[in-house]
Design a protein around this nucleic acid. Structure first.
Lengths: 340, 340
DNA sequence: ACACTTTTTGAAAACGATTTAATTTAATCT
DNA sequence: AGATTAAATTAAATCGTTTTCAAAAAGTGT
């Protein structure tokens, strides 16, 4: 049913009906009630495309899903959903392959320029991220989940990766560990670099030498965790502690330790970063896994909120949130030298 | 820039320009070229909302993301993206909480009735799924990923859960196992029921008694896997084999076995269903895990294709694909009685 | 050069809402 | 009651395309 017919049925003008439904103040309460009731009864709903054309708003937030990052992404998305539930705003997901940086950027441009969304969320930014430059240039509102080093103002929400890893590393140092390895995330993205820095600084501040051969980079998979952990643990002298980039990585690390007959928490201490997945719990691992913890879901929820604020006019430069990260100690960390 | 201005610049009518860009045959090749070049040069793009209003198409496929199923979902989504890459069609994700079935259904109605999408994909259907009934009633094209038992015609793509689990169970029986436990998915969804049936039939066809106390249901998490595996493995007589619903479940199962000093592949044989995640590989587990395997990503890709066909007029009743499931034998399965 | 097709192009009418500016109705004040 | 102000309603313009139907231009065959 169209507005026109619906209005005629109510013996009102389309104008009044439209206003009544959108909650404008200048329509009499009794009229509004009458309209609202009839709308439900007759099942009238404004044609969304017409609304969008005339208001210029699309009613959607865009977000890219990069191949290989689906796990974290899903949690983030779920968090967004929590906030966006009541709002009349959809989430538009564009899965991309990330094979080719140029191709990726082209897809991105098309997506942004065709204005299918009111705002964007940029994930896993790089230090000099073209996407951010483009969004800024085009005047499309956007929030960066993470940080970049690019020279344009932008709104962001990030967790304190540097501080978290620094603290984790320092804690391992406190336990007496001196050879500490790290399996970080993919190279080139800002958050990996922040973690590198946290690790590096913790060592240097204690007067220890930074040894680049103890740091590896790779995606957050069981496989990467296993491979690098094996190669670290086969070195001699063997590292006595290991910082892992994710829960998946940690699974691989545990497996590698086990395969070498090493006991996690004794022969090798492990701390991993935990994005808090409902299906994989650090407490439940054996031994339970010490983690730096920050909920991806919570970040998604808050990001949605911030984008909403952005859309209602808040200045991007005011939106800069750096979340602290918890350090949760469990059984996978212990004093150095107990058995090694 | 608007079509009108753009057309004026080219000294053509909006009509011709529109046609040239949409590839209609009745525009001269030289004209089309001129228009296309200018469009790129000046960066003209049709306003998407105007296009949608006039064509009546939204250019989006809707899909629900249920809380707790994010892992699988992300893979599926990623697969959809592979197919939808070139098309001008977005994926609209609505995360839902699944707390309350009534609430869920309301959200769903709102989503469907407001026609923000051209088609829907329904995931994890139940035997009598109201969502399917609603979509059918409203005439919204949709594809079910999985199957229902509802009495309306619908397009579906499913994997042969029943056959897969039947084969897995039969294989374990062939190895001499007689007490085989199963940790299945959530109760109430069709695919869990199909798996139950496969398990049940395999036993019964060999003349074995079906023992309901050996079957558990729960979500696909490490935690659920652990808890149920523990309780199964503490029974006496202890089951000598276990069928697990997912890779996450299997992680919990492995942990439970380890915690009881049991060796997977010797004391307890394990087969799990593997949706093929890039971050968790059955080959890499220790011992490597025998699986029934079917790629969730491939299903997503194919689903997108089928929805596209649906949108271009193919009849829903013609679309019914049942995919076979591979059984991959690795080290986690072995003959019964070796050590027990 | 003429009549007749076939190609190309264009004018104007949708598509279905929101919103501005104008008008009517009701309320308030002397 | 009449003038003034405030509240409620509406007519008409607008958003930016696509598409129908008609007209102009270009070919074709005699």
């Amino acid at each position: 049913m169209k507005l026109k017919e619906f209005a005629k049925y109510l013996d009102l003008s389309p104008t009044t009906v439209s206003r009544a439904l959108s909650g404008y103040p200048e329509v009499r309460e009794s009229t509004r009630k009458r309209v609202a009731d009839a709308a439900i009864r007759l099942g009238y709903r404004p044609n969304i495309n017409a609304v969008r054309l005339v208001t210029g708003r699309v009613g959607a937030i865009g977000i890219l899903m990069e191949r290989g990052r689906e796990v974290n992404f899903a949690e983030f998305l779920s968090g967004m959903g929590e906030r966006l539930g009541g709002e009349d705003i959809d989430i538009l997901v564009s899965p991309i392959a990330e094979h080719d940086a140029k191709e990726e950027m082209q897809l991105f441009s098309r997506l942004v320029e065709s204005r299918r969304v009111d705002a964007f969320i940029v994930n896993a930014p790089r230090p000099n991220d073209e996407r951010i430059a483009l969004l800024h240039k085009l005047g499309m509102p956007f929030l960066v989940h993470g940080r970049s080093e690019i020279d344009v103002p932008y709104a962001w929400l990030d967790i304190d990766n540097e501080g978290a890893i620094k603290r984790a590393t320092a804690y391992l140092l406190d336990l007496g560990h001196t050879r500490i390895a790290m399996i970080n995330g993919r190279p080139g993205v800002t958050f990996s670099m922040h973690r590198d820095k946290g690790y590096h600084d913790a060592l240097v501040e204690r007067g220890l030498q930074f040894d680049p051969s103890l740091v590896a980079h790779g995606s957050f998979t069981d496989e990467v965790g296993f491979r690098f952990a094996r190669s670290f643990l086969e070195q001699s002298p063997r590292p006595t502690a290991l910082v892992a980039g994710s829960m998946m990585t940690a699974l691989g690390v545990y497996r590698a330790a086990r395969s070498l007959g090493l006991i996690v928490g004794k022969d090798i201490s492990v701390i991993a970063h935990d994005d808090v997945f409902p299906y994989l719990n650090a407490d439940n691992m054996a031994p339970s896994l010490s983690t730096t913890r920050s909920s991806m879901r919570a970040a998604g929820k808050r990001s949605a909120e911030l984008v909403l604020q952005l859309l209602s006019g808040r200045s991007p430069t005011e939106i800069q949130e750096l979340w602290p990260v918890e350090l949760i100690l469990r059984e996978s960390t212990g004093p150095a030298g107990t058995r090694a």
